[in-house]
Design a protein around this nucleic acid. Structure first.
Lengths: 183, 183
DNA sequence: ACGAAAAAGTCAACATGACTGACATAAATT
DNA sequence: AATTTATGTCAGTCATGTTGACTTTTTCGT
């Protein structure tokens, strides 16, 4: 699978003070680059699905979060995606026009437009999650026995401290709602 | 109001979502979203540095990889970034014009333009790596005792299998060259 | 009841970073 | 000598983001 070994074949031993620890820790910059490449392939998954239907990654994000939080407000979506409403507006209009997302006025507050996935939207979201889950499941297995927990702590700690709690709440709420909603 | 009873039975959905592990405490979709939020903040770091000097994220990527692989060819950079030469061309020209990157003709093959960071470019790259390393170091600590190894295996396994070896080679080569090149 | 504020939508202009296609030049390879 | 490779460039387009200004509808506070 990996072939660091073949690299060492042609590797002249680091000459001078190739210094201190030959069993050196993996430099942080390696992790930076691994994350770069990992994320590139991770977000590349949905492209295969998106291209044929003329959508882009912005559509993916919207469909995903609307599906995860049925009935969410436009403002909530803006907070999650951190884009302007003008940017969101375009993408959302296309998704509504093509029948992937539905927007209904809120019952308690009628200024609100609550966003719901249609059956078509749900199916699309399932495709996205299916693809990315496959990759994620494989990678978590590869991470080792306690890898799941370690990776979870890692990812959470990569998030800005001031946003961490909000993200945890968001995810927890979506999971709880999904469990309460029979498939 | 919440239905506590349904909390434990995570009903395995129909055959399509077979990827999900019903016994897992944390659904895979949670990891998908954690990675989304983690990466968003991770790439947000360089923005603070980039905005004042009128550069974007494309400049960040180019400066980073040219700094990591001094003397790399334009083609190598295109392979890493997976963009077209027209896209790269604009960004590279700006970086050369403003003195962050230097391009010299190859000595053995004079068609090649080998890319080197200038002192200015090195300094900028160090800023990027510094910021992102800080976040990464904190997150790796938070991942636990054996977290580093687990995260490394995880990130590598997230990369498309057919690219994994190439990425490992790339990173290993950069590290080796850096060790042989004392600051 | 009235005015401020909030939620959403829209128009217009613009920036960034990607893309395709066509073409040019120099140098290496066959 | 012909072809291929490495690079660069012109021209046009697309996707996705941005600011700023303004409107409509509805709720909320005084």
């Amino acid at each position: 699978m990996t072939d660091i070994n073949s690299l060492l074949d042609s590797a002249p031993s680091p000459a001078s003070a190739a210094v201190e620890d030959a069993a050196a820790a993996v430099p942080l910059v390696d992790f930076i680059e691994l994350l770069f490449f990992a994320y590139r392939d991770f977000v590349g998954d949905p492209d295969q699905i998106l291209a044929p239907i003329g959508f882009g990654r912005a559509h993916h994000r919207v469909v995903h979060f609307v599906n995860r939080h049925p009935g969410m407000r436009v403002t909530d979506l803006l907070d999650i995606l951190r884009i302007t409403k003008q940017s969101l507006g375009r993408v959302l209009r296309e998704l509504v026009d093509e029948g992937f997302v539905e927007s209904r006025a809120g019952s308690s507050d009628r200024r609100q437009r609550l966003l719901f996935p249609t059956a078509k939207g749900e199916a699309l979201a399932r495709q996205f999650v299916g693809l990315q889950s496959r990759r994620m499941a494989t990678a978590l297995e590869a991470s080792g026995p306690d890898g799941r927990e370690a990776v979870q702590r890692f990812l959470l700690a990569m998030i800005d401290p001031e946003d961490r709690a909000a993200v945890e709440r968001l995810i927890e709420r979506a999971d709880r709602a999904a469990r309460a909603r029979p498939a």
